Amino acid sequence: MHRELITFEVSGQIFALDIMAIREIRAWTPVTPMPRVPHYVAGVVNLRGTVLPVIDLAARLGWGATEATPRHAIIVCQVHGQAQGLIVDSVSDIVTMQSENLQAPPTAGQDEVVPFIEGLAAIEDRMVMVLDLPALSSSGDVAIAA
């Protein structure tokens, strides 16, 4: 079975998300910080009258906070019936892969990242980490910001 993925970069690494979970890709918009949210929740933005919580994906993966610039983007995803944004360095392209080519993530190293990885895929001579979007949002902490 074919899967379409959107690839993007975070902290020099290539990631992908299933295109069916993505509602839109927005240019960088400054976020409004919220009190008492986890360190990886950058804040919220107004998305056509709706409060959209925005996750700093680099911080969520344990790589430190992103110093966002106008070159960054926000990928708006639908997770558990709620829209949320992910700050990424840049969005690359749409790729198609066979589901059976997705390999399990390694069990050693990068303990903070592996729980959020659905699998690894070799796409166009590069290794791409396919994110498990529900796992990224598994805690109720993001819902608090909304």
Rank of each mutant, 00 (worst) to 15 (best):
I94T: 13
P70Q: 01
F15E: 04
M97V: 15
G85T: 01
D111L: 13
H2W: 06
I144C: 12
C77Y: 08
S138L: 07
I22L: 07
P53W: 01
I19Q: 00
F15W: 04
E118N: 02
P33L: 06
D141G: 13
F116K: 06
T32I: 03
N101K: 14
A59D: 11
A108F: 15
H2Q: 15
Q13V: 07
D111V: 12
E67K: 00
H2D: 15
E112T: 09
A83I: 05
V76H: 05
Q110P: 06
L120E: 00
A73N: 07
V54P: 09
I22T: 12
I75A: 08
W63Y: 11
S138H: 08
A146C: 01
T29Q: 05
P33M: 13
A27G: 04
V114I: 12
H72P: 01
F8Y: 07
I74E: 01
A104Y: 12
A68T: 06
A145L: 00
D141E: 14
N101A: 14
L136T: 10
G81S: 03
Q84I: 08
A68C: 12
I19E: 00
D111I: 05
E118T: 10
G43H: 09
F116W: 07
E112Y: 00
S99T: 15
E118H: 14
I75P: 08
A58N: 01
F116N: 11
W63A: 03
P30T: 15
A104R: 11
V88K: 03
E24W: 00
S99G: 11
G140H: 08
I14M: 09
G43D: 12
Q84R: 11
D111N: 11
C77K: 04
I87H: 08
T32H: 01
P134G: 13
T32L: 03
M1G: 10
L57H: 00
Q13D: 09
I144L: 14
P106K: 03
L61F: 04
M129V: 02
T7C: 01
Q110D: 14
L131N: 03
I22W: 01
W28F: 10
Y40I: 02
A135G: 09
P38S: 07
V51P: 10
A21N: 14
D56N: 02
P35W: 13
L47P: 15
C77N: 05
L57I: 09
Q98N: 14
M97N: 04
A135R: 12
R36L: 13
W63P: 02
G140S: 10
R26Y: 00
F116T: 02
P105Q: 12
E112D: 11
A135P: 07
S11Y: 00
E100H: 15
I75W: 01
M129T: 02
A121P: 00
V142H: 05
V79T: 13
L86N: 00
D111Q: 15
A16W: 05
R3E: 12
Q84S: 12
R60E: 03
I14L: 05
V79E: 02
R23S: 11
I19A: 06
A68Q: 09
V128A: 11
V41D: 10
V54L: 09
R48A: 15
G85N: 03
T7P: 10
V51G: 03
M127R: 09
P105Y: 13
V142I: 09
